[in-house]
């Protein structure tokens, strides 16, 4: 039976890299006593796959991993058992049963939404709302992408599905140690996150800053992934982005 787990990763956990998060979940699943399936062979491993690796330094409210299990009592039980073994900064948000036919988490990913906030308060960019709208209205947003061998020009525009200023969302990751909520506006961005067309939000931010002629200090912004989406065709025959968790049921 295929299971999809949605989790949040924030606070100090943003410094834990993808492979270590995987190792963390392998142990957490053992601690929680989940009847996970193992692969065949001399060194069997848990059958587990992650949707989209999150870079070190980023936070997320919408991470996904799929596992296969031999049996479960209920998804509610599994969610409770997992949350009992989590640490501060990782919360299991939902556990869903996937249809056997569903694609794995990584192959399902079509898009991801992020917020970008300026850690010190308001972005040091005048009239940011208008500038962002003008920037997004451009026909193309060409950036130069450096690879190991060469540099390549790339148009970000087709992969940016939405870009706007937004009110702070006050998700757990925005609440600081004194319990203060963030009050300054953030940049909201919805981009292509598929394996072929993945766009890093930092690339868009850099292009926007260049457009505004502003140079931000390194690490002065916090990027938070809000949700990871898959593309479905709805009852009306229209393409539509829905959160990965909606592929499953309780």
């Amino acid at each position: 039976m295929k299971i999809r787990i949605k989790f949040a990763k924030y606070g100090t956990l943003k410094f834990i890299g993808h492979l270590d998060v995987m190792r963390f979940f392998q142990k957490a699943i053992r601690r929680a006593g989940i009847d996970i399936k193992y692969s065949e062979g001399f060194s069997p491993h848990q059958i587990m796959s992650f949707a989209a690796p999150l870079g070190v330094g980023m936070e997320s409210m919408g991470e996904y991993l799929d596992i296969e299990v031999n049996s479960i009592t209920s998804v509610e039980d599994m969610k409770t058992a997992l949350n009992e073994t989590m640490v501060d900064g990782i919360d299991v948000l939902s556990v869903k049963i996937l249809p056997d036919s569903s694609k794995n988490a990584m192959a399902s990913v079509a898009a991801a939404a992020y917020t970008i906030s300026y850690k010190e308060g308001n972005f040091p960019i005048d009239d940011i709302q208008q500038k962002l709208a003008d920037f997004y209205a451009k026909e193309s947003i060409v950036v130069t992408k450096k690879t190991k061998k060469s540099t390549m020009d790339m148009d970000l525009k087709p992969g940016i599905f939405e870009l706007k200023m937004d009110k702070p969302l006050n998700i757990p990751s925005d609440i600081d140690s004194d319990g203060d909520k963030q009050i300054t506006p953030v940049i909201y961005i919805l981009v292509d996150a598929s394996s072929s067309g993945n766009i890093k939000p930092s690339m868009v931010l850099d292009a926007f800053c260049a457009y505004c002629n502003v140079e931000l200090e390194p690490y002065s912004c916090q990027i938070t992934r809000l949700e990871t989406y898959t593309r479905i065709i709805d009852a009306q025959g229209e393409e539509k982005l829905v959160p990965l968790e909606e592929a499953g049921h309780e």
Binding site: Y10, G11, T12, F15, I16, G17, D20, V56, G57, D88, K119, P172, S173, I175, D176, S177, G179, E217, P218, Y219, Q222
Partner: peptide, 19 residues
């Protein structure tokens, strides 16, 4: 709620294995 770290994000992002 976030635990306040002794080192800034900037420092932790620069060093090998911030964990």
């Amino acid at each position: 709620m976030k635990r306040k770290l002794a080192l800034s994000d900037e420092i932790l992002m620069q060093v090998e294995k911030p964990a």
